[in-house]
Amino acid sequence: MTLSVARAVKDIVKNGYLNAVAVVTIAMSILVVSSFGLFILNANDIIAAWISGIRIMAYLKANLSSEKIFETELKIKEYEGVQKADFISKEQALVFLKEKMKGQSSLLGDLAENPLPDSFEISLNPSVKDIKDIETLAKRIKSIEYVTDVEYGQVWLKRFANILNLFRVGAFGIGCVFFLASVFIIGNTIRLVLYSRREEIEIMRLVGASESFIKIPFYIEGLILGAFGGLVGLIASFLGFISISSNITSGASSSFFKIRFFPMDVSLGIILCSIFVGWLGCYLSLKQFLKKY
């Protein structure tokens, strides 16, 4: 194995230009795909932060007896994901409204009757992180007999989630294109090396070299190219991230969320993916070449 690694390293150095092109291609692919990945990762964080602050407001029918209000509260608290449900009477709601309106509170002074309904302000468990879970919970609450309506900023939440999904699909598509391009470039690099060493391979066969003796250094070469390309791409992404995050943290948005780079396991996953790309490119070109010659 040591001999195979030495042969692979020697080949990489010997075909420096070709291999540099392969490494740069993988690095570029990793950079583009990980940029999308970073955007999605941080957007998910924003949504998660948003969701953790979400309160579902459940508005009740008018003039309910305290027994019915209590019954509603018990039903709400039974649902999974509900942390607490605070009752807000319509009188309290009016006081809050007046406090919020401050200067315009006189507008509310002439009201003959309090138009606001009784309501429950429902806080969610930290385990609720998905928009769909909130939607399901809100629907169930709305189905309670004495609840007329629920509100949880659904319009904005859905809009944001849709944009995020669009990016996810885009990232997947672009990821696929760059994956194929990288496999093709690596495969082509190995194929060119194989063609240039066609005679050498034939001689090796004639002196009794097994197919694995011939193949293993090429596989190692592919793996090294993949790993190196992945590492370079990841470092480039990190440098880009540092540059962008320093701009964001110096802006006003820093108080709402903190952007972060890929955790260690994801970073390792990215490098493993690029190693796989290197191996796959090598596998395909070797399979084709050794069948032909």
């Binding site: 010997k14 005679e199 050498e200 001689i203 090796m204 066969r205 004639l206 002196v207 009794g208 070299a209 097994s210 197919e211 003796f213």
Partner: peptide, 24 residues
């Protein structure tokens, strides 16, 4: 096919055009 290398190891082969690997 897999056994061919093992058979070839039983031989020493010499060619008219030497067939040495130029890069080695």
């Amino acid at each position: 096919r897999k056994k061919i290398p093992f058979i070839r190891r039983e031989y020493g082969i010499i060619f008219q055009d030497f067939r040495l690997i130029p890069s080695k």
